[in-house]
Design a protein around this nucleic acid. Structure first.
Length: 811
DNA sequence: TAATCGATCTTTTTT
DNA sequence: AGATCGATTA
């Protein structure tokens, strides 16, 4: 070893623990080899701190040019946070490229897409657009099937498989799939847009096919870091590989126990096999957890430890002992919501200091702070803020019950993730107008808005225009606007007028954008301001001028405001919100492209409804998946029942993934963890008996307190002695009376179809009635029923699952 | 050709 | 319970 005098350790390094510091200081250089680095970072081990510190350190102490650093994440939030925190240590980190995989891919394609014939003014299709495009290719195919195919195509791209790849059969073995995929690719190329998977797959293809481009990029990026590497799919792995030259320094960070995106192509093997794929890899483990207390960590670990395929890692709590996690057995989901509500109310009422809020729920906040241990809750539980709490559930649908209950009790809450802002009809309409404006070949956008509001341009006319654009007249190059214009003379008066009107809207939009000299834009603005009537859209700065103009001019705004009496104004607000978001972008084509790309890739823009509730002090309602990277002082994991979590069809590898999901959820909790499991639950509108989740049996019982009526092998959770559990009497779960369901829940018992005249029945919607005629048809027996209400209805099939119950027969 | 009604089927998780 | 599909109706 060469002796160099130890330089003083700068404070930003001094606060790291030895493993963290080792990870930061690792450069991979030994001799002329460059060793890649794999950081196995357990939950709450200060992973983000390590990455950001490492970036800053490389710039500061190693003289690495910030522009030569590329750091990729999976979510925009993570990317933003990383940028913010790195910049905090060293300003220059702002010049490093910190992006999500997809946004990097889009950035790459805007510059290099032309090499494979992609116009740089492409728009990114989301899943719905993909399905819509497929639907035009597959007439008369049920929506569900189209979606399935869309999903499979997306999976194929995740695995870097094209329509010709032999392995395609592993994704979808149906013979036509290959052909449909090929047709889809062809049509998408004609349109000139890309889908999500293309943002990864196409850059890899370019890098593979064009050595000079690859060289250029390898030259530019000397350091590449990947966060949440366990979530990378095969295509992303390929991209990483292509970007890495012999002396690129690669550092990936991840946790195999937190790999939860297999369903969308994430490949755990990426991280498990990283050392083989990148020979010479050094591995550093971060196993000190600064977030959760000991019992919480033990409970979480005891479950995930049952998994077979994991690298193995033992998390140790730096926070020491704490409250034992509580498992509550409850009668049904209403009680579950009530239980959570009372738990929260009691904790908040607890005393002064409540209502400050905004403390937790911050991603990975100060994970390495040793001082944190001092804040440990005392026995008597200090008062909590609403924002200390998070309710976790497996599926978004489960949020409803909590929302209802919290609304009723006035508990502030905020729903994360299901924000569907960009899925709203009015927003999609507006975006379609904008998309069509930049890309007149966009069939999907065109179809969406050409006859909205109704302009007399029916499907037949639309098809003609689309055919004309792609057909013989190659001169049109797929331009739908041009094709429409050319067809005008041949259309009926009504269709012609409508088409012309639509074309004018788009034309005016383009003009507005083209001569966006200050005078013009101000004029529009002034005019918009003048009409100060209530609920009027107002144009502000930048691109919002165009958005507002287009939305009004096209009639989309009016259409939604008047068509929907109840929420018309809400819809208008949403459009306004979209316009506001657009104000940050330049009023020209490039700005518009940027805006659309941003929207497609970062859907975190909040809904207007949610804004009201986004007081900084609110309970968080969130799916397990969405909690990754977050932490909360108190967490309630709900619906921990067999069939719900894990889902019933999960086995083997997929079961292991569910287990990891459980682990992710539990390790979000800092101070207190609760789990709830119901005996009955409404599913598809019917109440079904439930069983406790397998995972509940797997938890180390020495770190679990069971309350409520525990079924089967869960020991004596019943009865009186809750005394020492620290659960106030008022919120003790009630015992369920009897969990057996009624004998026959499925409606019609017995033979399905043997109805005859005179049968009496009960229909869920129409009440009592009697069969007055039975007739056979091709589809099966047709039954005519006379209801007490006087209604007379005919029903095609009265087999299982229908809403009838036979209750007897007239003589 | 759009709107309405009833039957049937559906549910993960998301960049 | 909610979305979606298909058929019947105005």
């Amino acid at each position: 070893m060469v002796d160099t005098p130890a330089p003083p350790i700068p404070p930003y390094l001094a606060m790291l623990n030895p493993e963290q510091r080792e990870a930061v200081l690792h450069t991979g250089k030994s001799g002329d080899a460059v060793h890649p680095l794999l950081i196995l970072a357990g939950a709450g081990s200060g992973k983000t701190r390590v990455i950001t510190t490492k970036i800053a350190w490389l710039i500061r102490e190693r003289g690495v040019d910030p522009r030569s650093i590329l750091a990729v994440t999976f979510t925009n939030k993570a990317a933003r946070e990383m940028a913010d925190r790195a910049r905090l240590i060293d300003e220059r980190a702002g010049d490093a490229m910190l992006r999500t995989f997809h946004s990097f891919g889009a950035w790459f394609l805007r510059r290099n897409g032309s090499l494979i014939g992609l116009n740089n003014a492409f728009v990114i299709y989301d899943d719905d657009d993909v399905a819509a495009l497929l639907a035009t290719l597959l007439e008369d195919t049920p929506k569900a099937e189209v979606k399935q195919i869309a999903h499979n195509i997306s999976r194929a791209k995740d695995f870097f498989l094209g329509p010709e790849s032999p392995e395609l059969d592993l994704i979808d073995h149906r013979k036509q799939f290959r052909q449909i995929y090929a047709r889809y690719e062809e049509r998408l190329a004609q349109i000139g847009n890309v889908d999500f998977g293309d943002l990864i797959k196409k850059p890899v293809e370019i890098l593979q096919g064009q050595p000079d481009v690859a060289r250029r990029f390898r030259d530019r990026f000397r350091v590449i870091m990947v966060d949440e590497y366990q979530d990378a799919n095969i295509a992303q792995f390929e991209l990483l590989k292509e970007l890495c030259g012999p002396d690129t320094y690669v550092c990936v960070v991840g946790d195999d126990d937190q790999s939860i995106y297999r369903f969308r192509g994430a490949e755990v093997r990426n991280i498990l096999e990283f050392p083989h794929r990148f020979p010479g890899t050094d591995i550093i483990r971060l196993e000190r957890n600064y977030r959760s207390t000991e019992p919480i960590l033990r409970a979480a670990s005891s479950v995930v430890a049952r998994n077979e395929s994991r690298l193995g890692k033992e998390l140790r709590s730096e926070r020491g002992p704490g409250k034992t996690p509580v498992l509550a057995f409850l009668p049904n989901q209403d009680e579950e919501a009530g239980f959570c509500a009372k738990l929260i109310e009691n904790s908040v009422k607890g005393g002064a200091g409540s209502g400050k809020g905004g403390v937790s729920g911050k991603p990975d906040a100060g994970a390495a702070g040793k001082d944190k241990a001092a804040e440990q809750p005392k026995a008597g539980s200090p008062a909590a803020a609403f924002s200390d709490w998070a309710i976790l559930y497996r599926t978004n649908a489960q949020s409803l019950g909590f929302e209802t209950e919290f609304l009723r009790r006035g508990i502030p809450y905020r729903v994360v993730g299901s924000l569907k802002f960009y899925e709203r009809e009015e927003i999609k309409d507006a975006l379609a107008l904008l998309s069509f404006l930049v890309n007149p070949r966009d069939e999907i956008a065109f179809r969406r808005v050409v006859n909205k509001p109704t302009r007399g341009v029916g499907p037949a006319t639309v098809d003609r225009i689309v055919d004309a654009s792609t057909g013989s007249a190659a001169s049109l190059g797929g331009d739908l606007g041009a094709a429409a214009k050319e067809l005008l003379p041949e259309l009926s008066a009504k269709a012609r007028a409508g088409t012309e009107a639509f074309l004018k809207v788009i034309e005016d939009g383009r003009t507005l954008l083209a001569d966006q000299d200050e005078a013009k834009s101000k004029e529009v603005k002034k005019q918009a301001r003048k009409s100060k009537d209530r609920e009027e859209l107002r144009a502000g700065e930048g691109l919002s001028v165009l958005v507002v103009h287009l939305v009004k001019d096209s009639g989309i705004a009016d259409y939604h405001q008047t068509n929907d009496e109840i929420s018309g104004n809400q819809r208008l607000n949403n459009l306004q919100e979209l316009a506001n978001a657009a104000s940050l972008y330049a009023p020209n084509i490039d700005g518009l492209l940027e805006f659309l790309e941003h929207i497609e890739l970062d859907r975190s823009l909040e809904d207007d409804t949610n804004k009201d509730k986004t007081k900084d002090n609110a309970v968080t309602l969130i799916t397990f998946h969405n909690t990754k990277g977050l932490e909360f002082r108190r967490v309630i994991m709900t619906g921990i029942e067999q069939g719900i979590f894990p889902r019933e069809d999960k086995q083997d590898e997929e079961l292991e993934e569910e287990r990891r999901l459980f682990y992710v959820g539990a390790t979000r909790a800092m101070d207190e963890l609760y789990l709830t499991s119901c005996a009955m639950r409404r599913i598809f509108g019917r109440t079904m008996p439930e069983e406790p989740s397998l995972f509940l049996r797997e938890i180390d019982k020495s770190v679990l307190r069971i309350i409520g009526d525990a079924p089967y092998g869960f020991g004596s959770g019943t009865g009186g002695g809750h005394g020492g559990y620290g659960i106030p009497a008022g919120i003790r779960p009630q015992h369920r009376s009897d969990s057996r369901p009624p004998a026959d829940c499925t409606g019609l018992g017995g033979s399905p179809s043997h109805w005859q005249r005179g049968d009496r029945l009960y229909h869920d919607d129409h009440g009592y009635g009697a069969v007055i005629e039975v007739r056979d048809s091709e589809e099966g027996p047709v039954v005519r029923v006379q209801f007490e209400t006087g209604k007379e209805l005919r029903f095609l099939s009265l087999h299982q699952g229908s809403r009838f119950t036979k209750i007897g027969r007239d003589s």
